[in-house]
């Protein structure tokens, strides 16, 4: 048994992690004291998932999380983060402004905390796509980029780079700017499976379009070596052949 947690709470988390919310809820002791933060937190999170999810049920979860968020421990931070998530994704009508407010407050209170920094990545998404202000794409990208210095957890920095790279692609920014983000994300690393392969393909393909032949070749080769069963393998190989041909043609014109 772990550090002071009761067995029913640990079991509930384990079941919640497997999306077995009803089992998790059934296993939690009902006679706990209201001061038992671990158990209250587990119950609130599990209730977010218990079907049928209702607006009233989510309101109760929010009230519980708000009470838990008043503390100073990790439970407080995760609770504050989940309040943002409730407004961003769980309520049937999302309230992006309130979600953004929750993330901003959390980041001010616990700037170095994991949940606060994950909240900043979500805040970047909201600023880029969902909040009414700033209005134009360029201003949105500037607003999201301004969050960078506050995100210090490496894998969250990586995700923020990917968020910004995609936003710049979406708004048709210059490929060089996009590539800078994607290459930074790749340097941090840690992506697995299909996402890792897709980043390799993206860098390869965008580098090809920008005529960075060596870089394009390098990333397509990495993709080919690591993804022997991906459906895009032959297109990647064909791209390598096209890169060779284009580079030869370019050199013969010099």
């Amino acid at each position: 048994m772990g550090r002071g947690a009761d067995a029913d709470v640990t079991a509930a988390w384990s079941l919640a992690g497997q999306h077995l919310a009803n089992d998790a809820l059934a296993g939690l002791r009902k006679d706990h004291s209201p001061d038992d933060r671990e158990r209250s937190f587990a119950e609130a999170v599990v209730r977010m998932d218990v079907q049928p999810v209702t607006e009233t049920g989510l309101k109760k979860v929010e009230a519980e999380l708000s009470a838990l968020a008043k503390g100073d421990d990790e439970i407080a931070q995760a609770s504050a983060y989940l309040i943002g998530r409730l407004y961003q994704a769980h309520y049937f009508a999302p309230d992006y402004a309130r979600a953004a407010e929750a993330y901003t407050r959390l980041a001010e209170k616990f700037p170095g905390g994991y949940w606060a920094q994950l909240g900043l990545v979500k805040l970047a998404l909201l600023k880029l796509y969902a909040l009414p202000e700033p209005a134009g794409p360029a201003a949105r990208i500037v607003a999201a980029e301004a969050l960078f210095p506050r995100v210090t957890v490496p894998e969250l920095q990586r995700d923020l780079h990917l968020v910004l790279g995609r936003a710049e692609l979406f708004h048709e920014y210059a490929i060089e700017a996009v590539l800078a983000h994607l290459l930074a994300a790749d340097r941090i690393g840690g992506l697995t499976q299909i996402k890792r392969g897709e980043l390799q393909l993206q860098i390869g393909e965008l580098s090809r379009r920008a005529r960075h032949w060596d870089q394009a070749r390098d990333y397509f080769r990495r993709f080919i070596v690591e993804n022997e069963v991906d459906g895009r393998l032959s297109t990647a190989k064909l791209r390598l052949a096209q890169i060779d041909a284009a580079q030869r043609a370019e050199e013969s014109h010099r």
């Binding site: 999306h19 999170v45 998932d49 989940l82 769980h90």
Partner: peptide
């Protein structure tokens, strides 16, 4: 969400 929080 619940899975991410549960792992933590």
């Amino acid at each position: 969400d619940s899975e991410i929080v549960a792992m933590s």
